[in-house]
């Protein structure tokens, strides 16, 4: 069998005495759209940062297409792209200059980079703004610009951290379709989210993380079929449970009673 696109083996991350990621092992085959689902503070961002070479794991190994991220970072990084949850791009560059910067770093020929960028700008409706400084973009536009930069060099694996958060419904839809298309063409996508529906409707396989541990791993059907209590809890946490609904009603009611 071919090398898995992403292989995490016993990854842990310790912040002082706090264990933000605890012995995480995940294998993602090539061309899969993998969803990393968990409530806020579960350790999604921490794990993704370790996979992209931003945060050194306390323990464990990470391989991208068979290359160890922390032993051969340069080779591994050539294969990946990363779109963080709050992309701070080079704000004083224009969209085009940013693309040019990324193209230069990855050594993409000018013609090829330009064509690709034009297509991506069109797709994300960024074309008319690509000559403006990035600092003037909205959060969603910055995210789309980061996506453009990420897709420019045809990465083997794309990591996206909560990509739909700043996007309007149309862009979110475009993104979902795009990711699906990319996976069908052989790119591997690793996407984190705290929204159950998103994971459900677009991912091939889902890893559920909570308190730094992998609670469950499999396709949505497999997960639904599995009836463990802890998994139930997580789904409730992700959807909002009965008790919470009650609380919300109470709070709303309390306000109208007030003088």
């Amino acid at each position: 069998m071919a090398e898995p696109a992403v292989m995490l083996d016993g990854i842990s991350k310790q912040y002082g005495s706090f264990l933000a990621a605890d012995n995480i092992s995940i294998t993602v085959p090539k061309g899969e759209l993998f969803g990393f689902l968990g409530p806020n503070g579960a350790g999604k961002t921490t794990t993704i940062k370790m996979m992209t070479g931003l945060l050194e794991p306390t323990d464990g190994t990470i391989e991208i297409g068979g290359v160890d991220m922390w032993k051969h970072p340069l080779q591994a990084k050539k294969k990946i792209a990363y779109v963080p949850d709050h992309p701070t791009l080079y704000e004083k560059l224009t969209g085009w200059e940013y693309v040019r910067f990324i193209a230069s770093v990855f050594g993409i020929p000018a013609r090829q980079a330009e064509e690709k960028a034009v297509r991506l700008f069109d797709l994300f409706s960024l074309g008319s703004r690509a000559d403006e400084l990035i600092e003037g973009y909205s959060h969603g536009m910055k995210q789309k610009m980061a996506l453009t930069g990420a897709l420019l060099h045809d990465p083997d694996v794309i990591f996206l951290d909560e990509p739909t958060v700043g996007l309007d419904p149309k862009s979110a839809k475009t993104l979902k379709d795009l990711l699906r298309q990319l996976c069908d063409d052989g790119t591997t996508v690793f996407v984190s989210t705290h929204i159950l529906e998103i994971a459900q409707e677009m991912c091939d396989r889902i890893g559920i993380i909570r308190d730094g541990k992998i609670a469950a791993l499999g396709t949505m059907e497999e997960l639904r079929g599995e009836s463990s209590a802890s998994l139930e809890d997580i789904f409730l946490e992700l959807t909002g449970d009965e008790e919470q609904q009650e609380l919300i009603r109470e709070l709303a009611g309390g306000r109208s009673d007030a003088p």
Partner: peptide
């Protein structure tokens, strides 16, 4: 983060 993620 960009400089770290890029292959430089």
């Amino acid at each position: 983060w960009m400089l770290h993620v890029l292959p430089l």
